[in-house]
Design a protein around this nucleic acid. Sequence first.
DNA 1: TCAAAATAGTTGCAAGTGCAAGAAACTAAA
DNA 2: TTTAGTTTCTTGCACTTGCAACTATTTTGA
Lengths: 149, 149
Amino acid sequence: MQETKIQEQRLEQLPVFYMEQIVRQYRYMATQALKSHQAGLSVDQWVVLKQISENNGSSQVEIGNSTVKDAPTTTRIIDQLVNKHLVSKQLDPQDRRRYMVFVTEKGRQLIERLIPVVQEYRQVPVQGFSASEQKLFISLLQRMLKNLG
Amino acid sequence: MQETKIQEQRLEQLPVFYMEQIVRQYRYMATQALKSHQAGLSVDQWVVLKQISENNGSSQVEIGNSTVKDAPTTTRIIDQLVNKHLVSKQLDPQDRRRYMVFVTEKGRQLIERLIPVVQEYRQVPVQGFSASEQKLFISLLQRMLKNLG
DNA sequence: TCAAAATAGTTGCAAGTGCAAGAAACTAAA
DNA sequence: TTTAGTTTCTTGCACTTGCAACTATTTTGA
């Protein structure tokens, strides 16, 4: 009689196990960096603000798609940015369901100031990675995402 | 006059950007798999339950360390498992600050039943990855985590 | 021996997220 | 035109998580 031994998997062999930790620690580091430079922004607020500035006038759905956030989350983050006077919303006269979202001058200046800060913390996790390693890494991540999608 | 052009980074070049999506989708898939098998457990509850069973009688701090969750989160998850009668807590007579956590018979049976389910969804993200690619991938993730730690 | 520090666990709060439902506006088809 | 369906955005709710503060117990070291 033969026993089929199921190979048990340890957490340490699961990519996702590491990814959760990486994401958490990275967000923590990024949050601290923004705080220490008096950004007055959360990481998500930064990402959305930056994305708006690169697609000035686009709708909330479009912003949500490009940052991979759902509609309610996008709405709330944009509202927070509006409250801080970093962006403004304007009804699209062509389609009165949509808002066109614009970066204000204050928002533009904040982005300018924060870009070097963000550049700096973004390179922390990939320190010591060669360019080809980074490319390989990204391609593995893309394959994994495809497997899940 | 020379202008130093800052190389702007797109979200698509950031490993963490993909990791967030992967973690989210993976958790979603895992949640569905557990639900469809009437596990009655969240993903985190499963991980903690399994970890307890492999370290029967250990303290909450030890469980928390091995699953990389903080003390309050560990407390809450264990309490949820206690409510479902899958584990039991017992004051350590040697150190009355500690609880020793044990898997119940009901818990053990549930684990047995769920192991194949978990095995199956765990391989989804790494479909098409060779063994050496998986090893490489893990090592890159470990390096990244080290950079952040 | 006794006060201070460290450790285990718990609780409350603020913030974020996912999901479902709903309001308003637009589109398409009968 | 009018009805049904779709899209955009908003709101509410349940749930999770991270953080800080707190209790109880044990350990340390003066």
